[in-house]
Amino acid sequence: MKKILHLTIFLAVVAAVAGGALAFANDLTTPIIEKNQLAAEKESLKILYPEASDFKSVALKGDSKTIQKIFQVDDTTYIFKMQVAGYKDGTVFMVAINTEGDLLKYHAISNGDTSGIGTKVTEDAFKASLEGKKANEPLDTISGATVSSKPVVEGIHEAAAYVDEYLK
């Protein structure tokens, strides 16, 4: 009977100490990590609109998994931060769409697919092929990298639909 007690107390104490240390580290670091993330986000927003002073974040309606965040630059243009699947880790990108549905700007933040193929979604050729078009019209994917580029195009269509539905 003493043995069982000894084992229970010992495992409980070790788990509590490990958990406590982890919780302490977490409480210490979460505010700093969030601050870093916001700074990084602001930086990538600045790439799209260097002259804009502030980006008002808009509450997200609907339950789409691809749209992560929405920022408002001025009363007609919104920036969507999107995360889509791909071949391996998929793509995180930002796209600016105005209330008329024109695709003003596109910027890919990261792509976790096969380097050289999937990462083409981050290159300027793909960016040029998108900007200036209507966000809801069929957009061309990259030949040879459809597994990575098709979800990005579908993501843009979803953002366009979101604009028509909620932001018009």
Binding site: L11, A15, A18, G19, L22, A23, N26
Partner: peptide, 15 residues
Amino acid sequence: ITYMDLLTFILVIAS
């Protein structure tokens, strides 16, 4: 406390 997922999972699996 979802950051505890790794610790609790690994404890449960080992036991």
